[in-house]
């Protein structure tokens, strides 16, 4: 197919890509915390961080220094090993999920650079043909971070937090999977590149117009899977202190945070590529710019919703998932199937 035209993907290129993803996404995730604080502040008519650097831009650096130098506390009766590896599971699965997401276009390193000159760096680190499912699977595996963290820390808030993790992630995985099944049926492929190709016809060919229900369902389930506000039950301060993160401090807590923001970016990328036209040019705007704008809009939507809407109760969460969203998703799939057959 058209992949044969491209230069060969070497292992060096993949490793470089992985390093780029790690570096860029962790920086962007850090910047996401700044953005979140700023946007929430503006919506509450506050200024937000202002004192570290111009407009508080260096707040990330200050927070990073603080997190790195804080004492790493392990509670007395906690299961030390599991307690210590749990945050890295969250961060690792979030970044592994990004391996199947196209981030930045392909490029070849110029020849004049020593050692690495001429290496082709692909846009996707691991171009497997079940990309969407892989991302979902890795996000499903990401549930172990909060789960093990809560169970290992010998704290009742922790165990309530991890119980909520289990029910929330397990339930909403179903909705995520079913909601993107209808677009997958239309495209006939699980690769994000094929999704992009499907929507080349400009604004009118976006998947949103064909599958509005699936888009809304995916957004709702994506909010739940990334633990964003209307479904922010895992670490709802009013009810369970910090949930699974109650006993964590320093960089281990920071890893949960980075994982959460990386997951937010992943969900934004999937929504932008699958439903909102991907990285095709829109009129006169270049594709790389428009995809960044779309991802930024979905990210902003998460912050906007956090500023506007209240939490829901855990029983309402389950009610919403199993009695509302899942039937709608199934009906959507059935209707899509009928329309495709006719």
């Amino acid at each position: 197919m058209e992949i044969a035209v491209l230069p060969e993907v070497t292992s060096a290129g993949v490793i470089i890509k992985a390093i780029i993803i790690l570096a860029i996404i962790s920086a962007v995730a850090g910047f996401g915390t700044y953005l979140e604080r700023k946007v929430l502040a503006f919506m509450q008519r506050r200024l937000g961080p202002m004192h570290v650097g111009p407009f508080g831009l260096l707040q990330i650096a200050a927070d990073g220094i603080k997190l790195f130098t804080k004492e790493d506390i392990v509670p007395q009766n906690a299961n030390k090993l599991i307690f210590q590896i749990a945050p890295s599971i969250t961060a690792a699965t979030a970044f592994i999920a990004l391996a199947a997401v196209p981030v930045f276009p392909d490029f070849t390193i110029p020849e004049w650079i020593p050692l690495l000159g001429g290496v082709f760096v692909p846009s996707i680190a691991a171009d497997i043909n079940v990309g969407v499912l892989f991302i979902l699977g890795m996000m499903a595996a990401g549930l172990y971070g909060p789960l093990l963290a809560g169970m290992a820390q010998a704290n009742k808030w922790g165990i309530i937090g991890s119980a909520r993790t289990a029910i929330q992630f397990l339930s909403y995985e179903v909705v995520t999977g079913l909601s993107i099944l209808a677009p997958i049926m239309l495209v006939g492929s699980l690769s994000l590149v094929d999704f992009n190709e499907y929507q080349t016809g400009g604004f009118a060919s976006w998947m949103v117009w064909q599958q509005p229900v699936a888009f809304i369902l995916f957004l709702i389930a994506g909010f739940a899977e990334t633990n964003r506000t209307p479904f922010d039950l895992l670490e709802n301060e009013a009810e369970v202190i910090s949930g699974y993160a109650t006993e964590y401090s320093g960089m281990r807590w920071g890893m949960f945070f980075i994982g959460e923001y990386a997951n937010m970016i992943t969900v934004s990328v999937i929504a932008a590529v699958m439903f909102m036209g991907g990285y095709n040019d829109l009129g006169f705007i270049a594709g790389w710019l428009i995809v960044i704008l779309k991802i930024a809009f979905i990210f902003f939507l998460m912050l906007w919703v956090r500023a506007s809407w209240p939490h829901i109760r855990p029983d309402q969460l389950m009610w919403l998932c199993w009695k509302v969203l899942m039937p709608i998703a199934v009906i959507n799939i059935v209707i899509t199937g009928f329309v495709m057959m006719v």
């Binding site: 503006f42 919506m43 008519r45 200024l47």
Partner: peptide, 26 residues
């Protein structure tokens, strides 16, 4: 009603940023 909520926060944000509605005292 949910969209009314979204509208209110967006209105406040625009008002705070461009309409001088920022309430912070440094």
């Amino acid at each position: 009603e949910l969209f009314v909520g979204l509208y209110v926060t967006m209105r406040e944000m625009i008002n705070a940023l461009f309409g001088g509605g920022m309430h912070t005292t440094k």
